[in-house]
């Protein structure tokens, strides 16, 4: 009996047959090639001479590391990267604090109007970014005029508008409401208030979704282009995506330098991505897409 059922079970895992196997590996192979080839080409091109980059070659005769030095200097990447690091850090910190507080209220407290307010917040996810551009530009200018510090061409305009993230609130709310009530009852008996519950139960148990928000917001903030382009007028706070965009428009013909600059700017994202990839996919699957 045992002997019979064992191979059967093994078979059930691979029971799709040879045709399916060939088909799936073909698709995977094509998918991997299409995903990877632009990267490989970008990296190879970043080492080429101008002549090689303009003519259909794949392997540079000589790997020109000097392209990186040149791109780094010409595109002023070092100062832009520092700007982006500061902007991303401020945005992320603010966004997480705002979202954690709101998600805690939405998931662990009962108050009149809770579901209505949450519904309104969710529906704002549908508003296209284009709608926000001009009104927010006017708002930010006005806030800078009446407030204590200038907003335009300064960190507040680049960070504060992104701190209210419905996506982050929604994701955290789903997770916070999954935490068993028993933990909260126990804490209540120990005399813990909302603040202690938040810092000692909710946040430590929700590292996975917080990580997802950190990765996605990091990518979003690092890559933001249109808004920073609108609210910066000098180099002082220019983030990396705008720096790269300007570099592309100025040096459009020097393909090899653009590719070197591009490689430099995506290294931080790829690094973060691979460091967190496992937790990242796991927590998306646990985030309760089911509503």
């Amino acid at each position: 009996m045992d002997k019979k059922s064992k191979p059967k079970k093994k078979q059930s895992y691979r029971s799709h047959g040879r045709g399916w196997k060939i088909f799936s590996y073909t698709i995977l192979f094509i998918g991997a090639v299409v995903s990877l080839v632009p990267f490989i080409w970008m990296i190879l091109t970043s080492f080429m001479s101008l002549g090689e980059a303009m003519g259909n070659t794949w392997i540079p005769k000589e790997f020109l590391w000097s392209n990186y030095a040149e791109a780094w200097g010409e595109a002023k990447l070092s100062s832009y990267i520092l700007n982006s690091v500061i902007i991303t850090t401020i945005t992320l910190t603010g966004e997480l604090i705002v979202a954690i507080l709101a998600a805690y209220a939405f998931s662990r407290m009962h108050f009149p109007g809770r579901d209505t307010i949450f519904g309104i917040l969710l529906s704002t996810m549908m508003i296209p970014g284009m709608v926000l551009m001009i009104p927010n530009l006017l708002t930010v200018t006005w806030l800078g005029r009446v407030g204590p510090i200038p907003w335009m061409d300064n960190w507040p305009a680049l960070t504060i508008p992104f701190m209210g993230s419905v996506f982050a609130i929604f994701l955290l709310r789903q997770f916070f409401s999954q935490i068993p009530d028993e933990l909260f009852d126990a804490a209540k008996i120990d005399g813990a208030g909302h603040f202690r519950m938040l810092t000692q139960i909710v946040v430590p148990l929700s590292t996975a979704p917080i990580l997802v928000i950190i990765v996605l917001s990091f990518i979003g903030s690092w890559n933001a282009l249109a808004w920073p382009l609108l609210v910066t007028s000098t180099d002082k706070w220019l983030p990396i995506a705008v720096g790269l965009y300007n570099f592309v428009s100025d040096e459009g013909s020097k393909v090899q330098l653009i590719m070197a600059g591009t490689v430099i700017t995506i290294i931080p994202i790829l690094g973060l991505y691979f460091l967190t990839q496992k937790q990242f996919t796991e927590s998306i699957s646990r985030s309760g897409l089911k509503g």
Binding site: L28, G31, A32, S35, L36, F39, I219, W222, N223, L225, A241, L244, Y245, V248, T262, T265, I266, I269, L270, Y273, Q277
Partner: peptide
């Protein structure tokens, strides 16, 4: 296969 997600629209 997931690499392209991490890349910005500009890139």
């Amino acid at each position: 296969v997931m690499i392209p997600i991490a890349v910005s629209p500009v890139v």
